[in-house]
Design a protein around this nucleic acid. Structure first.
Length: 659
DNA sequence: CAGTGAGCGAGCTTCCGCTTGACTT
């Protein structure tokens, strides 16, 4: 008889199975195995918010297998991740498999030693932690399955709202408003072009009479010109030579959020693409010596590194770069976020000796790029800090009673350290040798105009970064959040792939902000987490937490359902004029989507289609007329079909996806 | 399979977090 060990991920199961040998059978649950029903609320509010769990069709097969293996096993050991969700999965497994005395183990690194140690000290399931997860699940269900129907009633079908997606949407909508309202301000800067021993360099005006200039000190061209004329041909004197040594520390290894950010910045991979490729690297590739996983788990918010990996990395650095590039004892990192659930390690290569170059031939182009990023970031994080010398030369110029100060900066890398493999832009510039008091006359003094820039639209990187800073969303959900906002039609990508909101996105966000401000408050999740922690510690009860959220929320919701009219909420005003009567046009929503109509309806029934075509990707010409494009359309019942963008001139349509 | 706003009413849409499938016409 074997012992049955259940973990969450099949790749993890394979690895552990390898360590444990023939006495153990290791199987994966593939995440959660029970959930609230999809088509109903699934919460008995009257009965202390009792959740009603069902087994989703997807989980049936694996549960059947687990039940069979249980019969053949001596005992069942639940080895799910050590966090709130993992504890809940363990509990669901115990329930479904009808385990009388479930044995729960946890480990923080996937090594033989750690797992054998963990097996020696199984514990019981932590019910308080399970309760905390249930409260999280039920609260999200109540918010999502109550607010979404509110939007269906007041605007149009198919919309959605939720604790996470609505906060993310609000970020994008409010940023767009900031951009629209932004008024640029002009300012000027003045630079002196200097030369010494045939070496040219620039110094910038930064202070007057010992006082640092404000950004808008020169807010007209006239003022800038005046100063240029004033200082022309005047001698500059070296008044101060500042030298300082700066150390630059490497960044920590990746976690999910930072991997997505860096992959966007460096490779222009979307969050979705990054996660898909990372999954491939995690699951492994067929290398010369067989199949091997290349990176640790990619959905993590932990920066922990196993001691063994730390040691190996240190040896690698010493062997390849020399001892002066390694850090005594290795470097350890901690996540800043207090919500970190340390169930995994940081994202790192599983074997440091598999350099990107060495395995390049086994990877496709994108896999190689991402692996290279992960490998270099991890190795760099264990390398010595860089040392940089910064030199500032200050020049004084007198003009009448006033003294102006100019500054020229140079820097030199004294020791590159981690920069050797993680290059950063450091303007290495050597200033010529100058002595204090030395006189120099500028070749030229020039002014240049600048304008303040509006904040930029969110992209995958900055959105994930902002969400994480508020504690909104989890490593496994950052990429899906972005997808759902697009699927609902709330946001689109511009030509630079940045996000901007559609009318419907702005409408939904504004309605939620106005009528349900507590839900879209950026602090809502953090407050919820505090309560969940207290449930986990046994200091607050599950039903008290949910009740204190639910009572005011339900009351407000009932009032808004009753008092707000669809007419009032769902019509978007525009500046466009009706060609028939001259009134303003408005955007209205019907079961076929949005359209422009006259605000003077029913007196004037002018209407026009708002063309918002969803092209078939990759773009394809209409097979009939060869002029229009194939676009994706929907019937009244929601079934997808394909048609020509030149309808009604061209009547081509098809159920089949054209080839 | 090509339209849109009222009202009738059946049946449907929807959340967040764990995890990777794929009934092959």
């Amino acid at each position: 008889m074997k012992n049955l060990v259940i973990v969450e991920s099949p790749t993890k199961a394979r690895t552990i199975s390898h360590f444990l040998g023939n006495d153990f059978l290791v199987i994966s649950s593939y995440g959660h195995i029970r959930d609230l029903p999809k088509s109903k609320l699934g919460v008995d509010i009257e009965k202390n918010f009792q959740p009603i769990y069902v087994i989703p069709p997807k989980a049936r097969k694996i549960i059947k297998e687990l039940k069979e293996k249980k019969k053949e096993s001596q005992k069942v050991i639940l080895a799910c991740d050590e966090d709130r969700e993992g504890e809940a999965i363990a509990w669901h497994l115990a329930e479904v498999l009808n385990l009388q005395k479930p044995e729960r183990i946890v480990f923080h690194e996937i090594t033989k030693k750690a797992i054998l140690e963990a097996l020696k000290k199984p514990r019981a399931i932590d019910f308080n932690l399970v309760k905390a997860q249930q409260a999280r699940r039920v609260l999200d269900r109540l918010v999502g399955y109550k607010l979404s129907p509110f939007l269906w009633h007041k605007i149009t079908r198919g919309l959605s709202a939720g604790r996470v997606q609505s906060a993310a949407l609000r970020l994008i909508v409010e940023r767009e408003k900031e951009i629209k309202e932004f008024k640029p301000r002009d300012y000027w800067t003045i630079e002196a072009l200097l030369e010494k021993e045939k070496k040219e360099f620039k110094a910038i005006l930064f202070a007057k009479n010992g006082k640092k200039l404000e950004k808008f000190f020169l807010n007209t061209e006239k003022k800038a010109k005046e100063i240029v004329n004033l200082l022309k041909e005047k001698p500059f004197f070296v008044s101060q030579i500042e030298e300082k040594e700066i150390t630059k520390n490497p960044l920590p290894p990746f976690k999910t959020s930072t991997l997505q950010q860096e992959a966007w910045r460096e490779l222009r991979f979307s969050s979705k693409k990054t996660m898909l490729i990372a999954q491939h690297l995690y699951e492994g590739k067929n290398l010369a010596k067989g199949r091997q996983g290349l990176i640790t788990y990619m959905r993590t918010d932990s920066l922990n590194i196993s001691p063994l990996a730390l040691k190996e990395c240190q040896l690698f650095i010493e062997g390849n770069f020399g001892k002066n590039y390694s850090v005594e004892g290795g470097r350890k990192f901690k996540s800043k976020e207090k919500l970190t659930q340390e169930a995994h390690e940081a994202i790192r290569p599983t074997e440091i000796n598999l350099t990107p170059e060495k395995i390049k031939n086994y990877l496709d182009k994108d896999e190689y790029k991402l692996y290279d990023l992960i490998w270099r970031r991890f190795v760099a994080s264990q390398m010595k800090e860089a040392k940089i010398k910064k030199i500032n030369l200050l020049f004084e110029v007198e003009a009448g009673k006033d003294k102006y100060l100019f500054k020229a900066s140079g820097s030199r890398i004294l020791f590159d350290g981690f920069l050797k493999i993680w290059p950063q832009k450091i303007d290495e510039f050597a200033l010529p040798e100058l002595k204090k008091g030395e006189e120099i006359t500028p070749k030229e003094i020039i002014f240049s105009k600048h304008s303040t820039q509006p904040p930029s639209r969110y992209n995958d990187a900055s959105l994930v970064k902002t969400l994480e800073s508020y504690g909104i969303g989890r490593p496994s959900t950052y990429a899906p959040i972005i997808s759902v906002l697009q699927e609902r039609g709330y946001v689109k990508r511009d030509s630079k792939f940045n996000f901007y909101p559609n009318e419907i996105g702005i409408l939904v966000s504004d309605i939620l902000s106005k009528h349900f401000p507590e839900i879209v408050d950026y602090q809502f999740t953090a407050k919820m987490e505090d309560d969940l922690d207290k449930i986990a510690q046994g200091k607050l009860s599950y039903s008290d937490v949910l009740r204190s959220f639910w009572l005011p929320f339900a009351k407000n919701l009932a009032e808004k359902e009753k008092n707000l009219s669809k007419e009032e909420l769902s019509i978007i005003k525009t500046e466009k004029k009706c060609p028939l009567c001259g009134s303003n046009l408005v955007i209205r929503f019907s079961k076929f989507g949005k359209f422009l109509a006259c605000s003077n309806f029913p007196k004037c029934s002018y209407k026009e289609n708002i063309k918002e075509e969803e092209f078939l990707e990759p773009k394809m010409k209409c097979p009939q007329c060869q002029e229009g494009w194939v676009i994706i359309k929907r019937t009244k019942k929601g079934r997808i079909f394909y048609g020509c963008s030149r309808y009604p001139q061209c009547q081509w349509a098809s159920w089949q996806k054209p080839k």
